[in-house]
């Protein structure tokens, strides 16, 4: 790992209990990394929605299937990548549908649309099994080097 980046990775089964554990782990990492440019509530919201999406729509609540989480702060960006073991889904179509249904009181389905509003980039990879978001941070690319040297 380069000096100027911080990475956290984890693999969890498809249960909400494990989702909560890994979210708290990431939030703790952010605190330790002193990345105050991203409000922790936003980190938690984004992770919650990406992971619940992977459990519900990716792994279809199959607890034998796993979710891989990669999150990194580097080059002035927060990158978060969530991969499930499902059959993949049409992310762009889901986003469009969620936007259309936004205030229609329906019980599910607006999480990805809201995450898309919070980040600068949202990419669907690996035939829809991997969802990657990138949020630009308001600090320079040598943030961690400066901390280390300070």
């Amino acid at each position: 790992m380069m000096k100027n980046e911080k990475v956290y990775q984890g693999i969890i089964p498809s249960t909400s209990h494990d989702v909560e554990d890994i979210i708290q782990s990431v939030v703790e990492k952010f605190k330790r990394w002193n990345v105050e440019e991203v409000p922790l509530s936003e980190v938690e919201f984004i992770l919650t929605e990406l992971l619940m999406n992977a459990i519900e729509h990716g792994n279809c609540f199959d607890e034998a299937k796993y979710i891989y989480v990669y999150t990194a702060v580097k080059d002035g960006q927060w990158i978060c990548r969530v991969t499930d073991q499902g059959d993949g889904f049409d992310g762009q179509a889901t986003l469009k549908h969620e936007e259309n249904e936004l205030t229609k009181y329906q019980s599910r389905g607006r999480g990805l649309y809201l995450v898309a509003q919070m980040v600068q980039e949202m990419r669907f990879k690996n035939e829809g099994k991997t969802l990657e978001v990138i949020k630009h941070l308001d600090f320079d690319k040598n943030h961690f080097n400066k901390q280390a040297n300070g």
Partner: peptide, 17 residues
């Protein structure tokens, strides 16, 4: 209320409906 995810929004929207 400190934090809410989309399930919380759904709860509020169901009450509004």
């Amino acid at each position: 209320l400190k934090f809410i995810d989309t399930s919380g929004l759904t709860l509020i929207l169901s009450l509004l409906r």
